[in-house]
C-alpha cells in the first residue's frame, strides 16, 4: 500500500473518531437498525431464518447515516484550506480519492459490525440460514461502498458540509427509489420480455432483494460496481476541475 494512500486513509479514519462524529453515528445506526428490526420489521412474528427483519430497512437507514460520514471528506478540506496543501503533497488524485473513500467504506463496515452479535444472539433463538445471511451482509457491504463513493463525490462538489449532507441524501434516495417500474404493470413484473428485463436491471431494490433472498448473479454485483467506479472517477475529475 503506498505510504501516501495509507497516511491519508489513517488521517481520515482517525478523524471520524477525533470529532466524536463516529460515536454518534454508530449509536444512531444501532438504535435505528434495531428499532426498525424489532418494531417495524416483524422480528418476532415473521420467519426470520434469514434475518429478513434486520435487512428490510438497511438501505433506508444507510441513506440517512452514510452521508453523515462522507459529507466532511472534501468539504472540510476545502473549508479549512487544506485541500490545496493535500493536493501538492506527493500523492495522486486517485490515491487521495481512494483513501477517503476507503476510510468511509471501512467506517461503514465497522457500523455494520455492530449487528454481528445480533446474528449470534438470534442463532440461539431460532435456526438460521447462515449462507443466506452472509449474502445479505455482502449486499450491505456493497451498498456501503456505493453510498460512500457517491457521498464522497457529492462532498467534492460542495464546500458546505450541511448542503453536502442534504444533497448526498437526495442523490442516494434517487438511486434507491427512482426506477422505471411505472412503465410496466405489476402483472408484467416477472415477465421474461427483454423490455421488462431492461427496466428491472436498473432497479436498485431488485438487486438488493436478489442478494437478500440468496439469489446472487453477476448482474447484481456489476450493478453496485457500476455506480461505485464512475462515482469515484467523477470525484477525481471534480477535484482536478475544482482546484483553484
Amino acid at each position: 500500500m503506498p505510504i501516501a494512500f495509507k497516511t491519508v486513509f489513517n488521517k481520515e479514519f482517525a478523524g471520524f473518531f477525533r470529532s466524536g462524529n463516529a460515536y454518534i453515528v454508530l449509536g444512531i445506526y444501532a438504535l435505528l437498525s434495531f428499532a426498525a428490526t424489532f418494531y417495524a420489521g416483524g422480528y418476532f412474528s415473521l420467519d426470520n431464518t434469514s434475518l429478513t427483519s434486520f435487512f428490510l430497512y438497511q438501505p433506508e437507514i444507510l441513506i440517512v447515516l452514510l452521508p453523515a460520514i462522507t459529507m466532511r471528506s472534501w468539504t472540510d478540506e476545502r473549508r479549512q484550506g487544506t485541500l490545496e496543501y493535500l493536493l501538492t503533497q506527493p500523492i495522486s488524485y486517485v490515491s487521495a480519492v481512494l483513501a477517503k473513500f476507503g476510510a468511509a467504506w471501512l467506517f461503514g463496515l465497522l457500523m455494520l459490525s455492530v449487528s454481528l452479535p445480533f446474528w449470534l444472539l438470534t442463532s440461539f433463538l431460532t435456526p438460521l440460514d447462515n449462507l443466506n445471511i452472509l449474502s445479505s451482509y455482502l449486499v450491505c457491504i456493497l451498498i456501503i461502498g456505493t453510498f460512500s463513493a457517491l457521498g464522497c463525490t457529492v462532498s467534492a462538489f460542495n464546500s458546505n458540509t450541511v448542503i453536502a449532507y442534504i444533497i448526498s441524501i437526495f442523490v442516494l434516495w434517487c438511486l434507491c427509489n427512482l426506477n422505471l417500474d411505472f412503465l410496466i404493470t405489476p402483472a408484467e413484473n416477472i415477465s421474461d420480455d427483454v423490455f421488462v428485463r431492461v427496466i428491472r436491471s436498473l432497479n436498485f431494490n431488485k438487486h438488493y432483494q436478489d442478494f437478500v433472498s440468496g439469489q446472487i448473479g453477476l448482474d447484481n454485483v456489476i450493478y453496485f460496481f457500476s455506480v461505485m467506479i464512475p462515482a469515484l472517477w467523477l470525484n477525481v475529475i471534480a477535484l482536478e476541475f475544482k482546484k483553484k
Partner: peptide, 24 residues
C-alpha cells in the same frame, strides 16, 4: 458516466440476469 451506468446494467442484466448462484 450516468449513460455508461445505464448501458452496463442493461447489458449485464440481459447477459447474466438469468444466471444466479444459490446462496441459501
Amino acid at each position: 458516466l450516468f449513460l455508461s451506468f445505464v448501458f452496463v446494467n442493461i447489458g449485464s442484466g440481459l447477459l447474466f440476469g438469468r444466471k444466479k448462484a444459490d446462496f441459501t
